[in-house]
Amino acid sequence: MALLEIKDLHATVGEREILQGISLTVEAGEVHAIMGPNGSGKSTLAQVLAGRELYAVTGGQVLYQGQDLLAMPPEDRARAGIFLAFQYPVEIPGVSNMYFLKAALNAIRKQQGTDELDAFDFLNLVREKMTLLDMDQALLNRPVNTGFSGGEKKRNEIFQMAVLEPKLAILDETDSGLDIDALKLVAHGVNALRGAERSMIVVTHYQRLLNYIVPDYVHVLAEGRIVKSGGKELALQLEESGYAGLGIADEEEAVGKV
């Protein structure tokens, strides 16, 4: 049984259909990259998988470990091992990063039948993962993402992933806005978590990230459909010829060309 099976998924916002029939199967341990121009629906797919109600699923099916994923509320998906690293992590003033992470970890552990971590073990775990991502420990006592730089927010996402140890991680443009050093750190953090039991969907706009996180499969998304799938060499091909080489218009490139 595949870990994740997406079959002909359609989703809308208001009147507008954004996902127009997506099918994708992810086996345990695989890393799939999803590339595509701005506005092609990458974030929508990621958010629909995590359970954002803003998007209405109008057709298709998603099975996670053989279960109907779309019937589960977001917290149940997280507890079952799904993690979304947000493209735009949300600032939550008034809730400390530490409190938040502990609540999250314990909710997940409870579901999985493991004991809640005590304060000491929790702190040890957190320190270890912060070191992995070269993060400043002071961030723990700050409110979630509040006043963080763009890079700090992205690293905080991967840090959370490292602590929560999901079965399926969906990274939504975690590379965007990162300088090369930060990118390497994030990739290092992600690679440290790769394993036979952990699958990933790595959403990116740029091929650059895939030099560091080498995917098993690459899919190209355009206008809410997967228009091409291949191995890691597809990313390189895209790098050379651009989305235009596949006959896909990229809003951003178009703007750039004015």
């Binding site: 917290e75 997280a78 947000f86 992590p89 008034g94 938040f100 609540a103 909710a107």
Partner: peptide, 26 residues
Amino acid sequence: EALFYLQSRGIGKSDARSLLTYAFAQ
């Protein structure tokens, strides 16, 4: 969005609501 962010980390909806409410008064 904040509510969804918390839920997406495994925090139940009612806990997420009370956490955000508390945060407002913080």
